[in-house]
């Protein structure tokens, strides 16, 4: 019994060392830009870099677009499948899990060949079109997370009963969706949205292959051209991921409170 606890602590401490060291190392490295003293120079260089501002802004806008696209595609479908077409559930679930099976690099490979300038849908022909394709690609990547988040939210509120109750009180479809269902699954949708944001914001492969000025390719470019700035970028990226996860945790806690 005691031996077991000592072993457990040993494993836990080893894990803490392995998982914390890279975080500490990155932080320390990012402060080393000035010789001999710790400074915030690397951060200053990064933040002042117009490229940083542009690519980050681009990625933020793109991830917002992705979230909107994802919600529009997933939420009504998840609702409709739960309410009217439960037999479609396994099919929809299977499709939403496919992006976990097919590596992103293959999906984007397909995009480049399928939507090239000589095809019926020449999305890669224009910058706007490519932006849309990138958002669509990210929305595809986020399908598993988005669908699961929304579906869990729907399961928690007994859609069928709520919808029927609202309809028996005279509400039409628009009212049911906007005033009954959406407010009740808003938290679930937001969780999905922040997870999507965390995944999309620093994504590299799709953005690089579609040749868009996103944050991921910028980081890689910095990585091969600068010494300390990449560490500062990593700290910023980790910060954004943690902030997103923190918001999700907060949201999860809030639902727990409202359920009493």
């Amino acid at each position: 019994m005691n031996l077991k606890r000592i072993g457990s602590w040993a494993i836990f401490i080893l894990a803490v060392i392995y998982f914390l060291l890279p975080l500490v190392g990155t932080l320390e490295f990012s402060l080393r830009a000035r010789r001999g003293v710790y400074s915030l120079d690397a951060y200053r260089n990064v933040l002042d870099d117009p490229q940083f501002q542009q690519t980050l802004a681009y990625s933020v806008i793109l991830s917002i677009a992705t979230v909107i696209l994802g919600v529009l595609i997933v939420a009504p479908t998840a609702f409709w499948v739960r309410l009217k077409m439960p037999r479609l559930r396994p099919v929809v679930e299977f499709i939403t899990l496919l992006p976990l099976v097919i590596p992103p690099i293959i999906i984007v490979f397909g995009y480049i060949r399928l939507f090239n300038t000589s095809s019926i849908l020449p999305l890669t022909g224009s910058a706007r079109g490519t932006d849309f394709l990138l958002a669509a690609g990210y929305a595809t990547l986020s399908l598993p997370y988005m669908y699961r988040a929304v579906d869990t939210g729907l399961r928690a509120i007994e859609v069928q009963t709520l919808t029927e109750a609202a309809q028996s009180l005279g509400a039409g479809w628009a009212t049911v969706l906007a005033r009954v269902i959406l407010p009740n699954i808003a938290v679930a949708i937001l969780s999905g949205a922040f997870l999507t944001f965390a995944i999309v914001i620093g994504e590299y492969v799709i953005a690089a292959l579609l040749n868009r000025p996103a944050f991921g390719p910028y980081m890689v470019w910095m990585g091969s051209n600068r010494a300390y700035e990449p560490a500062a970028l990593a700290v910023i990226a980790f910060g954004m991921t943690w902030a997103s996860m923190g918001v999700i945790q907060l949201l999860a806690r809030r639902t727990r409170f409202t359920k009493g």
Partner: peptide, 25 residues
Amino acid sequence: GVASNFAGVPLAFAFIATLGRLGLV
């Protein structure tokens, strides 16, 4: 939950900063 989504560019930078030729460790 967070770390399983860390795969990507920042993770590489973190390891360079830690175990690279000039890294902390």
